[in-house]
């Protein structure tokens, strides 16, 4: 009993600390100075905000931030940037090409992620990557507009579109 309360409180304290550091960094980026008055105001405001926000963070069922989770998040962001650059060259080629080589269509894709935030991140990254655009999410299925349909099968489409992000996101949200 006591042990459980202790365990819960340590995750709470950890979430509080991460939120506090994040909010202070955002404040410092907004003001862009190291003057002591600005810093004091920022630290005070982010202390109060993270006191309130850490409560709702626990309620949302988000993953507890640890060093491991954050490093997986960084790997995910790096792979996302690579895909974004590929996507843009692809779309630019299709737009400039005089014959417009497009075969658009709407396909369904399955996902195994459970949390709402993970699904949101998956949908956002699918929107930003080559030739795909998320139209809707319901349950564990995503409706996707694909600019160059190569397969109509659900499994193959999942493999082609969603799997490369899902394996990163699963590690972040495990």
């Amino acid at each position: 009993m006591v042990e459980r309360i202790f365990k819960k409180s340590t995750t709470r304290v950890r979430i509080f600390l991460y939120l506090f550091i994040l909010l202070t960094l955002v404040w410092m980026a907004l003001t862009s100075t190291l003057h002591w008055q600005e810093l004091t105001a920022g630290v005070l405001i982010s202390f109060i905000l993270s006191l309130f926000l850490s409560k709702s963070y626990v309620g949302l069922g988000l993953p507890t931030p640890t060093v491991k989770t954050l490093s997986f998040l960084l790997i995910y962001i790096a792979s996302l940037f690579k895909e974004i650059i590929k996507a843009n060259i692809d779309v630019a080629y299709r737009v400039v090409h005089p014959k417009m080589p497009i075969r658009p269509g709407i396909v369904v894709v399955k996902t195994e992620l459970k949390q709402d935030l993970a699904k949101l991140m998956l949908a956002n990254s699918i929107t930003l990557t080559p030739g795909t655009f998320t139209l809707d999410i319901a349950g564990d299925k995503l409706l996707i507009h694909w600019i160059n349909v190569s397969t109509q099968d659900e499994e193959k489409a999942t493999q082609a579109i969603a799997l490369k992000f899902e394996k990163h996101l699963k590690r972040v949200f495990s």
Binding site: R103, P104, G105, I106, V107, D136, L143
Partner: peptide
């Protein structure tokens, strides 16, 4: 008109 496939009928809300 040149679209290949429209699977949105499988989707419950459409």
């Amino acid at each position: 008109d040149g679209s290949v496939v429209d699977k949105s009928r499988d989707f419950p809300s459409y």
